[in-house]
Design a protein around this nucleic acid. Structure first.
Lengths: 169, 169
DNA sequence: GAAACTTGTTTTAAGCTTAAAATAAATTCA
DNA sequence: TGAATTTATTTTAAGCTTAAAACAAGTTTC
């Protein structure tokens, strides 16, 4: 079979023909599939084992790392979800006694959200199991493969951030 | 420094001490961050450029690949979302004239969902832009890095599927 | 100090998502 | 055949999620 030569324009550069980015698209769909697959399973196990939703678990995970508490804005940035979303989430977790809120002493607009002792204990128990599930889901990757994937995802994160910053200013 | 020997039990097997899976957890969180970051930006651009939601775009993408149409169950499996979710999504896209449904001739329970001509045209226009966005978001990765990432994610997908199949039967 | 602005949070309306229960049609099998 | 099971879809109730608008308190600038 004949090769199709790439058409060139006057400046000896490949002509602005509709570029083919199918490989990048496939890469993105595969990344999304992995993410959806694992997230769905984690969601299912959290519900079955602890009757808790993934968003609640994620929120508690953030608070567990911040003993002095966080404001809604901090949480919103860290979790990459909207402010309005957090208002409801925090409301429900406060109602169930997992966390408490106090108006900040330095800024009367802001609230400081903290895990209660009960909330922290409950989270720690869940987190221990959760860590094991994740290890199990990734267990067919060797140490080296895990390290390589980690590095490539770090680069992907930077690449996406740069592209987003460029677009949004 | 002395190496800490791994404690062995009577059967010469490593004792059930709390294992450290922090690396796998970090890997999962990084994967999730990449996915959330890119997904959020794609969602934002779809809304700004075409006033369409990501779930609608995803549904149309599946149908575009299936000229003979698909049932709700097919779509549900492919998109990894619940059946009930699709009922509503298809309902709204049918109402806006993007797709149509016909009762299957071979199975009176099932409906065959297809893009309309208008729906297909609209999707193709969006898809062309979308592919460029994805390429841009991944553009800091070299060809080789993209290929490596692709391979590692394929392995991750298999690993997760195996772990999930083992648990759920 | 007042006006302009930025930042922190809540509200609203719409849509997405799920799990579980319900319904209905098809298939299996005794 | 008829009962039991499976498969395809819808309904329901609850919660998640977002964007946009509103509000309220802090900061900057003149």
């Amino acid at each position: 079979m004949d090769d199709q030569p790439i058409p060139l324009d006057a400046e000896t550069k490949a002509v602005e023909q509709p570029e083919d980015h199918r490989d990048e698209l496939r890469l993105w769909l595969r990344l999304l599939t992995c993410s959806t697959l694992i997230e769905g399973e984690v969601r299912r196990r959290l519900r079955e084992s602890f009757d808790v939703t993934l968003p609640r678990f994620d929120l508690m995970a953030q608070l567990d790392k911040a003993p002095d508490g966080m404001t809604l804005s901090d949480l919103s940035k860290r979790m990459m979800v909207s402010n309005g979303n957090l208002t409801g989430l925090v409301e429900r977790l406060a109602a169930s006694g997992h966390l408490d809120r106090q108006v900040s002493r330095t800024d009367r607009r802001a609230q400081v959200i903290r895990l209660t002792a009960a909330g922290r204990a409950e989270f720690r128990a869940m987190a221990a199991e959760h860590e094991g599930w994740i290890a199990e889901l990734f267990s067919d990757l060797s140490r080296k493969e895990q390290a390589d994937l980690m590095r490539l995802l770090a680069k992907t994160k930077l690449s996406a951030r740069r592209a987003i910053a460029g677009e949004t200013q």
